[in-house]
Design a protein around this nucleic acid. Structure first.
Lengths: 132, 132
DNA sequence: CGGGATCCCATTTGATACTG
DNA sequence: CAGTATCAAATGGGATCCCG
């Protein structure tokens, strides 16, 4: 009964807090510049370290290495070592990563829309300079 | 005709790249720890600076100030000064922010699901310690 | 209340070189 | 190829003080 609306800030405040927490939890594990992009890069199948690095422009080997470890710890990615000759190592998404599909798809869709908007000169954003 | 699949890495590589770029564009403007959370905090109406700060646990005044400016520049938020006495300042989402709904909702939903999973002890994640 | 300015530390990152 | 080691540089972010 913590939140009765006797006249406090707003009745929906509690709901908003729970949303903020949920978003915080999500961002904790998949936030940051690279995480989602790595998952996207792996989304059409196994890939090797250098393949991933080439796919994601701007990421360094060190950062990629660290992020892959984190993603593995959190159950999004598995690392497999194939001992056939020559030895190769491949990263692959786990089924748990699939639960991110709605997030990733909506993000990509929004990104495409946003790019269109920027290219039509809507706001004064120097944003996409580098990408263009 | 850049990508004919004469035998390259994979035929869907080009598509994957465009997804990665779209995601990159999106993350460029709404990435980071705070952006989306601020938008969520404003999603049920105008709010004042200190209200927002209280809603988002862990954010400092300086960071909030900077993020709000960025969000304003990029067209997600408007800052309104009410000159009635006493003067008050309120932040409000623009209609453009509404286009983020699918992203935000899927993120929140995933976050809730993820939390459940963590609390059942699935992976060895020390992740949510602080939130709990 | 709504911030801006400053200081200062900690973490992140980039670049480069190196290794099994 | 798949990373690791190391150092320098950039960035982030807290603390504090201040102002209108």
């Amino acid at each position: 009964m913590a939140f009765t609306n006797h006249n406090g800030p707003r009745p929906d405040t509690a709901q908003c807090y729970s949303k903020l927490n949920a978003a915080g939890d999500a961002l904790y594990v998949i936030g940051g510049k690279w995480r989602l992009r790595i998952i996207i890069a792996l989304s059409d199948g196994k890939r090797r370290f250098n393949e991933i690095q080439r796919a994601i422009s701007g990421i360094s080997a060190r950062v990629l290495s660290n992020e892959l470890k984190e993603l593995e710890i959190n159950g999004f990615v598995t690392r497999k070592v194939y001992t056939d000759f020559p030895v190769s190592i491949e990263y692959e998404l786990t089924p748990y990563s699939d639960t991110l599909s709605p997030v990733i798809e909506s993000l990509i869709e929004w990104g495409e829309m946003h790019r269109q908007r920027i290219m039509q000169g809507e706001p004064a954003t120097a944003a996409l300079e580098e990408t263009l």
